[in-house]
Computed example of a mutant assay.
Amino acid sequence: MTDQPQTPTPIPTDKLRFTMPPQHASPHDERRYRKERLAAALRLFGRFGYEEGVAGHITVRDPEFTDCYWVNPFGMPFGHITGSDLLLVNQAGQVVEGRSHVNQAAFVVHSSVHQARPDVVAVAHSRSVHGRALAALGEPLEPITQEVCAFFEDHAVYGGTTGVVVDEDEGRAIAAALGGYKALILRNRGLLTVGDSVDAAAWWFITMERAAQVQLTAKASGKPVPIDYGDAMRTREQLGNDLVAWINYQPLYLQITRDEPDLLS
């Protein structure tokens, strides 16, 4: 009689690896971590085509000097940026660490959002094609897919000045329009997202851009069927927090750091 193969024993769940946001022993360690994540996010934005000329920024609050923010240098392609290229800039837009200029016009928006939202660690605003197309319509995202429900009643449309923002009052108006939301559609300009980490802010921007693409494509093809209010709210509760965004972002981070490890230098 042939022995029957035994069913493999399951590995205990506490022995399985599951990546979560790390805890840091010192501000120095957390600063290095945030700068590495910022450089990686900028590389990804470059890979996805979210830049045009000198436009586009991601900023991250310094863990020790919380009224200062790390940002990409003016005029440097996203695809070339390393951690050592990043600038530390104060709320007035003055460079306090680094060797390059900062885009003052764009930084007004970021500084205003950071000041209005102490809970926000990172802000992303850049030039994605579908985000700008949706912004040109002045329309919000609609709950027509599971992924977009993360933004259901958690984003707004700002219809103020559509030119280059150089005025602090305009920056404060944008921050006020964002309010407590995770995202804002700037009419005729594009998308802005925030998060409690670089990873979360970057993920919200990437998935919001994709949601804009889906909405534009669906409406060009016919009449989308919306998800009902209750289901949209429940889906947002499941998918719409920054921890879920951080987890979703990790495959992208692993991909870019393995493909382009020089960004960590």
Rank of each mutant, 00 (worst) to 15 (best):
Q4M: 04
Q4D: 08
P10A: 10
P10C: 04
T13P: 02
K15I: 00
K15M: 11
L16I: 10
L16A: 06
L16Y: 07
R17F: 15
Q23Y: 06
H24R: 04
A25K: 14
A25S: 15
D29E: 14
E30L: 06
E30C: 03
K35V: 11
E36M: 06
A39H: 09
A40L: 03
L44S: 02
L44E: 04
G49I: 03
V54N: 13
A55E: 09
G56R: 07
T59S: 15
V60E: 07
D62I: 01
P63A: 04
F65M: 11
G75A: 01
G75L: 00
G75K: 08
P77F: 09
T82S: 13
T82M: 13
G83F: 00
G83Y: 00
D85K: 01
L87H: 08
L88V: 05
L88Y: 12
V89K: 12
V89M: 14
V89C: 13
N90M: 08
N90K: 07
Q91E: 15
E97R: 13
R99F: 14
R99S: 15
R99W: 11
S100E: 11
H101E: 13
N103T: 03
F107W: 06
V108K: 14
V108A: 07
V108W: 14
V109Y: 15
H110V: 00
V113C: 14
H114L: 07
H114T: 05
R117Y: 14
D119F: 08
V123G: 12
S126F: 05
H130E: 12
G131I: 01
R132T: 05
R132L: 12
A133Q: 14
A133Y: 06
A133C: 13
G138Y: 12
P140I: 11
P143T: 10
I144T: 13
E147H: 07
E147I: 09
E147G: 06
V148G: 04
A150Q: 15
F151S: 04
F151C: 02
E153H: 12
D154C: 06
H155D: 06
A156S: 11
T161M: 13
G163A: 15
G163N: 11
V165F: 14
V165I: 15
V166E: 15
D167R: 08
E168S: 08
E168I: 01
D169H: 14
G171E: 12
G171Y: 04
A173S: 13
A175Y: 08
A175V: 08
L178E: 08
L178Q: 09
G179V: 02
G180H: 08
L184H: 08
I185S: 12
I185F: 10
R187W: 03
N188R: 10
N188T: 02
L192W: 05
V194I: 13
S197Y: 05
D199Q: 08
A200V: 00
A201S: 12
W203G: 00
W204M: 00
W204G: 01
W204I: 00
W204E: 05
E209Y: 04
A211F: 07
Q213N: 10
Q213T: 02
L216G: 09
A218M: 09
A218C: 12
K219P: 06
K223M: 06
P224G: 10
V225I: 14
V225A: 03
I227R: 01
G230V: 07
T235K: 02
E237T: 09
E237D: 09
Q238I: 12
N241S: 10
L243D: 11
V244D: 04
A245S: 10
W246K: 00
Y249A: 07
Y249G: 01
Q250R: 11
L252R: 05
L254H: 09
I256P: 01
L264F: 12
